[in-house]
Structures are given as C-alpha cells and as structure tokens.
Design a binder for these strands. Sequence first.
DNA 1: CGCCAGGGCCATA
DNA 2: TATGGCCATGGC
Length: 212
Amino acid sequence: MKGLLEVYKILLSTYGKRNWWPAQTAFEMMVGAILTQNTAWTNVEKAIANFGESLSPQFIEAASLEELADIIRPSGYYNQKAIYLKALTAWFKKYDYDPEKVRKKQGQVLRQELLEVKGVGRETADSILTYALDKPFFIVDAYTKRILSRLGYELPTTYDQIRLQIEESVPKDLYLYNEFHALIVEHAKQYCQKKPICEGCPLQTFCAKKIG
DNA sequence: CGCCAGGGCCATA
DNA sequence: TATGGCCATGGC
C-alpha cells in the first residue's frame, strides 16, 4: 500500500497526537474493547460508569452473569458480553491479574491465547495487544477498511491479509500503530461516516489523486 | 420511525 | 472461505 505513511503524516498533522485508548488501567482497556464491539463508545461510557469503583477483575470474577449483564446493559448485547467479560477475566487470572506478567510473553503467543478466549476476535485481540499489552498489531476495524477503500486501495478479503499488508507498508512501531489507529477513528468520525463528507477533508487531495 | 455504532459466534454450504 | 442470522442499547 504505497503512500500509506503519507496518509498517517497528514492525519497526524491535522488532528495531532491522540494519546489513546481512553482507559485508566490495562484491565479497563480490555473491558472497553469487549464492550465497544459494534457499539457506539458513548454507550460504553455509560456501562463503564455503572461499575463505579468496582471495575476490577476480582469483581467480575465474583459477580454473577445476571449482575454483570445488568451493569453493562447500556453497551448492548449485554448477555453475550457478560459471558465474554467472564472469559477474558478468567484468562487474565492466569497471570494473577498482573499486566506486567502478561507482557513478558511474546506478542504472537498472546495473540493466539486471546483468540481462544470466547468473545475475543481478531480486531479485539489486536486492540488489546496494542493498547494494553504493548505488542504492536495493526488494528483493522470498519473505519480502517472504509477509509483505505475510499482512498483507492484494493483490500484483500481476510482480516489478517489486510493487517499484514498495512504492517508491511509502515514501520513496525508500537507508537505508530497506536497513533495511526486512533487518528483513523478520529478522522472517520468527522469525514468518513456512511455518508462521506469530502468538504474540508484533509485527505481530499490524496483521495482524489488515488481515485481520480 | 429507521439507521447505525471502534464485532464475534455459530450454522451452513 | 465466505456468507447470513443473531445479539440489543442509545443517539440522531
């Protein structure tokens, strides 16, 4: 994907450093990654707020599925996500709920482990790896595919093919992956919703160049 | 009222 | 491997 780094630079100069992901702790980040699946972040915020002071792996381990579902109700799919949070927490317990212990393992190994957790698919795994565990894997979400497609890039069919192509096109750097994805989300929210807003779009020139 | 949001699971062919 | 149904709330 030629010119992808240029896209990153334009977005960075336009929106500035994002300093993502909005979470206080690694565990809160992981919880947010589950709750935001196909869900508006504003609803996730309500669910997070409902935990109050008890957003901890210990609380989720002890809580019943019914209690959990009731707390996370605003985030939608609450019955499924309650199960997912339990599964994620059970995985985390193997590391004594200690993010530093998790980070001692290799990224590829952790990715496999995460994909075996019910409710953690590729995008969620890569989000957790990049934003909570310091293991760089480029996150391919709906926004990423939409923007790249509109810029004129031909995208492969599977998630990992797209991810690998992107990773081959930019320096393999945790900080860059972190910022780039955050910038993509910010840009998409402003200009790349279902109905595109090309007026004032900072990628307009680049976009026109690729599409013609 | 209908559409959609920072997906993933499962069954099916 | 690739579709399709399903899950569910809140904002617009």
